[in-house]
Simulated assay, not measured.
Amino acid sequence: MIKTVYTIGTLLVGGAEVFLTNLISKLNLNKYDVSIIVLDKENNTFLEKKLNDLGIKIYYLNKKDGFRPFTFIKIYRLLKTINPKIIHGNIGGMIYALPYVFLKKNIKVIHTTHTLASLEFGKLKRMVLKYFYKRSLIIPVVISNINYQNFFTTYKIPKHLIKIINNGIDIDKFYFERKFNSSEIRLGHVGRFEEVKNHRVIFKVYESLINKGYNVSLKLIGNGSLLENYRKKYKDVIFIESSSEIAKELKDIDFFVFPSLYEGMPLAVIEAMASGCIILSSNVGGLNDLVEDGVNGYRFDFQNVEGFVQTIEMLYKDKKLMAKIAKNNQKKVSEYSLTEMVRKYEELYKG
């Protein structure tokens, strides 16, 4: 079996963490002997449970916040013990593996950038990574065409060294035949409660529609540092900290509002597309690849509350248009199959 190590910052529920769990769950585990090195502590999330049920070895380093030099030694010793043929880094974990990558020969190393490369790391870390990318010591993978351009602009390495592999989901699991027969405007969002997700705009859209006299519901799924502040303020909103049944939760959401400040290729949006939700997003990062304005959703400047509100009003009054956009979404999402994503990563592991 091929010893394969994945590194990641945490297994709290987020896009990169769901990506990693999905990838491993569909990987040929008779061929790949998989371990995960997690910088964070164990958090007893449903992702951790799923990986444990698959028999995956997980090493938690219990790293505290901030830069921790001793973590380089911990990871070096751990990798030396495991002796992997493949290392696949995600969200922060790769940085601490660099000494091992530099010293070890005959190893394949891949790093997936889950957001814009210009925002993933600070200047010093980017300079170090550029050294590894340029010499093909690490194969960089980006998750959308927009991210590809941003990666090239940020690192200025030859374009042929950068690989594009779209994020993928289990499309059949999320597919839902929508009727759009509710008298309620059903808004929703899946994402961690952090500044980057821009929840304040979602709440402003919600309040504006209520003030105009509409019957509105809002369901928000996710955890994070800002959750409690919002939960105290908005008593009528449905807050779900974590769910292993996102496909079921999406059935109660018609308008999926996603006004992020920046994004890579958000799995939450791809899942909502497969479920037939109407996507109303900001016009940043990989969202420009996912959402074709007026065809399978609508894009706005992330501060344009009125744009979100007016479009929701227009759509709410035109159920045929809502149904058409939902169908276009489910057609578009065929490009983001989990099976295809796993096949491409396995090709990269072999190549």
Rank of each mutant, 00 (worst) to 15 (best):
E184N: 07
K85L: 06
K74H: 06
A97T: 00
V142W: 02
P158I: 13
N106Y: 01
N167L: 08
M94A: 14
N147E: 11
Y100F: 07
L124C: 12
F174P: 11
G89E: 02
I139K: 15
F174D: 10
L137A: 07
N181K: 13
Y96S: 06
L137Y: 02
I82G: 01
N83C: 07
K163A: 14
I139G: 08
V109I: 07
V141E: 01
I157C: 05
T113Q: 15
P158A: 14
I138A: 04
L79Y: 01
I165L: 13
R77L: 08
N181A: 13
F121D: 11
L79Q: 00
L129V: 13
F152P: 10
I75T: 00
L119G: 13
T154H: 06
V141G: 08
I86Q: 01
N166W: 04
F174G: 08
I171N: 05
N145H: 14
K159R: 07
I164S: 09
I139E: 11
H111M: 15
K104I: 02
G122M: 12
N166Q: 05
K134L: 14
I165P: 03
H114F: 14
Y133N: 05
F132P: 13
T115M: 15
K173Y: 03
K159V: 11
L161Q: 08
Y96D: 09
I146T: 10
R178C: 09
H114A: 14
A97N: 03
K104W: 00
I82P: 00
